[in-house]
Amino acid sequence: METTLRDFAFVLAFAVLAILFALIAVLIPRFIAPRTVGLKTESIYECGMDPFGSAWIRYAALFYLYALIFIAFDVDVLYLFPVATSYVRGGNPEEFIALLVFVLLLVLAIAYAWGKGVFRWKYEGR
């Protein structure tokens, strides 16, 4: 079974339909929904108080570390899919050894992050 461009024409058609549908769904209320304009209609929601300060607040830098290990990981895990497709049942033990080495290298990434204290969520000196 070959992957052809036509396969992805199906995917493209569905993606376009999704956007078209969403557009229509958003456009319909323009014709039937009421419109009101009050003093606070267009202000953002902050539980009824007047919003203060910038909304783009600072958040924990820890999220960046999680994002970094994810990038190190996700791309590598993707390499395992072709391996899994051509993994033969029985025989050829070197295939398993290759898999073992690859996965152990990935484990090293987690072990490193663990050792560095990424998963600890404690602020030092507080």
């Binding site: 958003v26 319909i28 209320p29 323009r30 039937i32 929904a33 009421p34 419109r35 009101t36 209609t41 267009e42 202000s43 953002i44």
Partner: peptide, 11 residues
């Protein structure tokens, strides 16, 4: 479908 769609000012 009949609900008003509000776009906040500073988005």
């Amino acid at each position: 479908l009949a609900k008003e769609i509000i776009t906040p000012r500073f988005v």
